[in-house]
């Protein structure tokens, strides 16, 4: 059934509209620097490789675990090299003893309001909860359950699953050496996708040329 056909054209005809997949990007000798890379201080070697992003995860609350995971995942989908450094409470995100049990609390969160309350009385969905409510026994587990349910409804993976997804997409994950020692974590408890336990200066070296996002 195979017929001999002429080889396919590998370059689009003039005027052909197609997305920029970034495959052709990267340093071309003698070419002008790409947009955003013009202002390099004198004497500093400009980073020439492909775009990189480095995330620092320092929080262990459920709601604060997601920003870096979601943005990191989006960056990977854009062909960007991603490194994530877990430090301080952020280490709970890669500790298998804790990472499926991260919690969300109302305490200290003045942006806490519930969309469902709007059905009770219009406008109530924008009113923030009294801070004292966050201290009621059982409130943290209630709020955590609710948030997890909302995430599940949107098909957002749990933290451990998310780490697997990121690793499969090529992300590099590291635990902070200082926190690891301080919190007496053992290697067997680290999520398998974690590449290593590294020092702050190791991370700074790895992050050369990266856009750094601290969470």
């Amino acid at each position: 059934m195979t017929t001999t056909t002429a080889p396919r054209v590998t370059t689009p005809p003039p005027g052909f509209v197609m997305p920029d997949f970034g495959d052709t990007r990267g340093p071309v000798p003698g070419s002008a620097p790409a947009h955003g890379e013009q202002s390099v201080p004198a004497g500093v070697a400009a980073y020439q490789g492909r775009r990189k992003m480095a995330f620092i995860c320092s929080k262990g609350n459920l709601d604060m675990a997601y920003p870096a995971l979601i943005m990191g995942n989006a960056a990977l989908g854009e062909g960007i090299e991603v490194h994530i450094f877990f430090t301080f409470w952020g280490l709970d995100m890669i500790n298998t003893r804790t990472n499926d049990r991260l919690k969300f609390t109302l305490s200290g969160n003045t942006a806490m309001h519930m969309p469902d309350l709007g059905r009770l009385r219009p406008g109530l969905e924008h009113v923030s909860m009294p801070q004292a409510m966050g201290n009621l026994p059982g409130m943290t587990s209630f709020a955590t359950r609710m948030m997890k349910k909302q995430m599940e409804d949107l098909d957002i993976p749990t933290v451990p699953e998310f780490l697997d997804l990121l690793a499969a997409s090529g992300a590099h994950l590291y635990a902070c050496r200082l926190t690891y020692d301080m919190m007496k974590i053992i290697e067997a408890d680290l999520h398998p996708a974690v590449e290593g336990v590294i020092s702050a200066s190791d991370f700074i070296e790895i992050a050369e040329g990266a856009q750094i996002i601290f969470v």
């Binding site: 970034g22 495959d23 989908g77 062909g79 997804l165 997409s169």
Partner: peptide
């Protein structure tokens, strides 16, 4: 990509290998 894994049964790693960069 996540849905292609959870519903379609493809693995994300394979998809990145088939279509590198922005799968």
């Amino acid at each position: 990509l996540r849905r292609m894994q959870s519903v379609g049964g493809f693995t994300v790693k394979d998809l990145f290998a088939l279509y590198p960069g922005k799968p």
